[in-house]
Simulated assay, not measured.
Amino acid sequence: MFISLFASFPTAKFIVERVTCNQRKDADEWDVAVRWRLQGIHEGIGYFGRPSNKPIKILGINHVRVRNEKIVEEWMAFDGMDVLKQIHTNAENTSSD
């Protein structure tokens, strides 16, 4: 999934905005949350289909459970519908953020 996602935006910047770690009580486990942003041009074939050459911004978060210094679980969330809206919106109808 990551390969296909990044293939859609081959020259994009991946920016980590915040990392939070909490150790689980009575265990050698950590819960880690990573808030990130991907900014670039939809210029590759991948998760979001044929290139549109539109500027895209994806806001996302990953939650990771680490045990004995190894990732044992991971969840990733981002709004794919928002990305599709950015891809399929006409340039004259977009607003700057």
Score class of each variant (00 low, 15 high):
L5I: 01
K13I: 05
R18C: 07
N90S: 11
K85R: 15
V83N: 02
K70N: 10
I56F: 04
S95L: 10
A33K: 09
A7C: 02
D97H: 07
G80D: 08
G60T: 03
V66Y: 07
I61H: 09
W30G: 08
E17R: 14
S4L: 01
T20F: 15
W75N: 09
N22I: 11
H88I: 02
L59D: 12
N53W: 15
L84C: 05
G40S: 05
R35W: 15
R35L: 03
I71R: 03
R35E: 09
G44I: 00
F78Y: 13
G44M: 01
H63V: 09
E73N: 10
K85N: 12
S8H: 00
K70R: 13
L5V: 01
S52G: 10
W30E: 13
I45N: 02
F78G: 02
E43K: 15
N93S: 08
G49A: 13
E29A: 15
H42W: 07
E69F: 13
I71D: 04
M76E: 08
G46L: 01
A27E: 12
F48T: 00
V66N: 15
D79L: 07
E92R: 11
E92W: 08
R37M: 12
R24S: 12
E69T: 09
E43Q: 15
E69S: 14
A91D: 11
N93I: 04
F6R: 00
D97M: 08
S52H: 09
K70M: 10
G46I: 06
R65T: 15
E74V: 09
L5C: 01
W30Y: 14
A7T: 00
S8P: 04
G80A: 15
E69A: 13
E73R: 13
D28C: 10
V34K: 14
D97I: 09
S8M: 01
V72A: 07
N53M: 14
H63P: 01
I71H: 05
A91H: 06
R37G: 03
G80F: 01
N93E: 12
R35F: 11
R37C: 10
I58T: 03
D26Y: 07
K70E: 12
H88C: 05
M1W: 00
A12D: 04
K85C: 06
Q23I: 09
R35A: 06
Q39L: 07
F9C: 04
M1K: 04
I45T: 14
S4Q: 02
R24H: 08
K57G: 06
F78E: 00
I58G: 02
V72D: 06
Q86P: 10
T20Q: 11
H88S: 09
I87C: 15
A77F: 15
T20Y: 10
K25G: 07
T11E: 12
D26F: 14
D97G: 07
M81G: 13
V72P: 13
G40A: 08
S96D: 05
V66W: 06
W30T: 13
E29P: 11
L59P: 05
F9V: 08
M1I: 02
G44L: 00
T94V: 15
A7R: 00
L59V: 06
G44T: 01
I58E: 11
F9K: 05
G40Q: 03
A91Y: 08
P55Y: 03
I61M: 08
E92F: 13
Q23C: 04
L84T: 10
E92S: 12
M1N: 08
F14T: 02
